[in-house]
Amino acid sequence: MNAAAETTKGQSEDIRPLSAGQFIAAPTPGERARLRGARCRACGETFFPPRRYCAACTSGEMEDIELPSSGSVESFTIVHQQLPGSAMIPPYAIVNVRLGAGPVVQTVLREGHEMLELDDDVALVVETVLNEDSHSYVAFIARRLAGGSKEEGK
């Protein structure tokens, strides 16, 4: 899996989501991530990724919803050790992002992680994370929102 380390914008022929079913519409690199969540019609709990039965009340009456494409950083950690098989090159941040009243989603933040603080606002955007077998694999990652952080207010 040597290609895993190649995260540069390749000349790949087609774009595929790294994880099928995460997006409510075809993802375009550089644009806001339109994530597919699920809401339980019985109890109202929301989930990401979507699921067929509600984890809270076990109802099978679930509907697709589009999740907000920004949220606040509930917590984060800076990873310094390479995970075998990963396309992410340390150091990078793993962030738990709370999407308003909705679910907490986990992803990475690659640029500006050294300025990240708890409760920062971040956007979820589509980026190419892996080029392999002439395919570009895209996923949603977190990006700090300009003007939303304490440093930039100084």
């Binding site: 098989g85 990963s86 793993i94 986990q106 990475v108 994370v129």
Partner: peptide, 11 residues
């Protein structure tokens, strides 16, 4: 090959 591994989340 999983999403969690490629994304560097399975740490």
């Amino acid at each position: 090959k999983s999403y969690q591994t490629v994304m560097g989340l399975a740490v």
